[in-house]
Design a binder for these strands. Structure first.
Length: 478
RNA sequence: GGCCCCAUCGACUAGUGGUCAGGUCACCGCUCUUUCACAGCGGCGGCAGGGGUUCGAGUCCCCUUGGGGUCACCA
């Protein structure tokens, strides 16, 4: 059975790269009728952020990437938090020491720093020179017994090469001499990523390891660890990296890697996933809009391209707009928008009214927040008037008093009534419709970018329209 | 710098030896039109360079260049 996993580390705001990897984990498992699981890699006590785990799990829910096992769900191979599996890592570290494939090292951080400097000056690579390999086993055991702090290091081979069979690029060869005696178990008893990932993936039955390309350089260590522990290798897939438009890995520091930030701006999970699905992968028939299910159905790794792809806010926004106007139903869209209106403090007389407004605005916003920003005049009277709108207002000001009179006399504000009335008015004045509509639009919305005039009149309704128009008249004076 | 990965329009990509190198975003025009959008139509724009292999290379090989990743008791 194909088992994939995402192993986020709870160190802050969830990263877009995490969603990206999770997407492919999810798709690959689904495509194969396998299982996608979540494991929390909380082995770094310094960077640990208590809220992060919940945020991450909650986000998978929001995205609709459901998992079969996880820290909140449990499962047959739990616990799914590495901090709760410490004995396991200790056990395998000990096993490796006993079999002579790992060893204790007692250097302090300061000493390591000195060694690193020394190596660098000697023209060699930085890192660790493996000097503790020479410790007598009895000596090593005695010092450990005496509670002297130590780390456990992997005894990497000094000869030959290690090949990582990457499913996306074929064999990737590494000189073993270039591999460091990586730390497996830290002095605090926590494992490093390298030990933990191998132990857990094996114990949890992970068959396909899908992760970012930044892991490729340390993949040979993992391959060697599987060998040292006598376990069968999983399949390796190193996904291309998501790049910052400015160059380099997409980073939180530059501010565009936070999923929550996109969520707060009103990006839809479906649109985000769809966009991410097109980063490095393409639908066989070239279509751009597709669901998770559709993607899972036709997914193959052959369609993966390996160059890193730059994350484009413009394109994400286009996808979001596409989902807003063509994919979501009006009901769904309304539900998505409601929390944003609530946050903005906007109220509306009925859901029916809200839906009509959304429908009228639909082609005019690409994020949910943008809807709020652009449609304030549908929800309250103290909307701002843009400079351009004010200019238009004055330009056509002469018509306004008559328009007020005309509208006051109309039996209703339905398009069938207002359209001939306003067009007839323009004609009578010998001007184009726009000369009448624009000032009116400015008066009623404070904006020059709105839905059609007749829709506005109908939605706003008689009283507000007349009120707003009357209110605009004094503005014409100055 | 060592090691590793990658390389088609500004961006995301299709291409798997023979295509006018196609699509999408962005940008620019036009159409529609009461504004702004949407939509439709059109345009701009690319195989990094050099060697090979081949009757024929964006497609295969090598070198150069460029970009990225990684070199922690972080993941």
């Amino acid at each position: 059975m194909v088992v994939t996993r995402i192993a986020p580390s709870p160190t802050g705001d969830p990263h877009v790269g995490t969603a990206y990897q999770a997407l492919f984990d999810y798709i690959w498992a689904k495509k194969n009728g396998g299982k996608f699981i979540v494991r929390v890699e909380d082995t770094d006590q310094k960077r640990y952020d208590a809220e992060s785990e919940n945020k991450i799990l909650e986000l998978f829910g929001w995205l609709g990437l459901s998992y079969a096992e996880g820290p909140d769900l449990g499962g047959p191979h739990g616990p799914y938090r590495q901090s709760q599996r410490l004995e396991l890592y200790r056990k395998y570290a000990d096993q490796l020491i006993e079999s002579g494939q790992a060893y204790r090292a007692f250097e302090t951080p300061q000493e390591l720093e000195a060694i690193r400097k020394e190596l660098l000056e000697g023209g060699k690579r930085a890192g660790y020179d493996g000097r503790a390999r020479n410790l007598e086993p009895e000596d090593s055991a005695r010092r450990a017994q005496a509670k002297e702090p130590y780390v456990v290091r992997f005894k990497t081979p000094r000869q030959g090469t290690t090949v990582v069979q990457d499913e996306l690029r074929g064999p990737v060869e590494f000189e073993n001499l270039g591999l460091e005696d990586t730390v497996l178990l830290k002095a605090d008893g926590f494992p490093t990523y390298h030990l933990a990932v191998v132990v857990d993936d094996h114990l949890m039955g992970v068959s396909d390891v899908i992760r970012g390309e930044e892991w490729l350089p340390s993949a040979p260590i993992h391959v060697l660890l599987y060998q040292a522990l006598g376990w069968p290798q999983p399949k390796w897939y190193h996904l291309p990296l998501l790049l910052d438009p400015e160059g380099g890995k997409l980073s939180k520091r530059k501010g565009n890697a936070s999923i929550n930030r996109y969520r707060e701006m009103g990006v839809l999970p479906q649109a985000l996933l769809n966009y991410l699905g097109l980063m490095g992968w393409s639908f066989p028939d070239g279509r751009e809009i597709f669901s998770l299910e559709e993607m899972a159905q036709v997914f193959t790794w052959e369609r993966m391209s390996l160059g890193g792809s730059a994350f484009s806010w413009d394109k994400l926004k286009w996808f979001n707009g596409k989902y807003i106007r063509e994919v979501l139903s009006l009901d769904e869209l309304t539900q998505r928008i409601q929390p944003f209106l609530e946050k903005a403090g906007y109220t509306y007389s009925s859901e029916q009214y809200l839906k009509q407004v959304i429908e009228a605005m639909r082609a005019r916003f690409e994020t949910l927040q943008e809807f709020v920003d652009k449609s304030g005049y549908f929800f309250h009277d103290d909307y701002p008037t843009s400079e351009k709108a004010l200019a238009k207002l004055k330009e056509g000001g002469a018509f306004l008093p008559e328009l007020l009179e005309l509208l006051t006399g109309l039996p209703d504000f339905l398009p069938e009534t207002t359209e001939p009335a306003l067009k007839g008015f323009a004609e009578a004045k010998g001007v184009k419709a726009g000369a009448v509509m624009q000032p009116l639009r400015a008066a009623l919305t404070g904006s020059l970018e709105t839905p059609g005039m007749f829709e506005i009149l109908m939605l706003l309704g008689r009283e507000p329209v007349l009120k707003r128009l009357a209110r605009a008249l004094p503005l014409l004076a100055d």
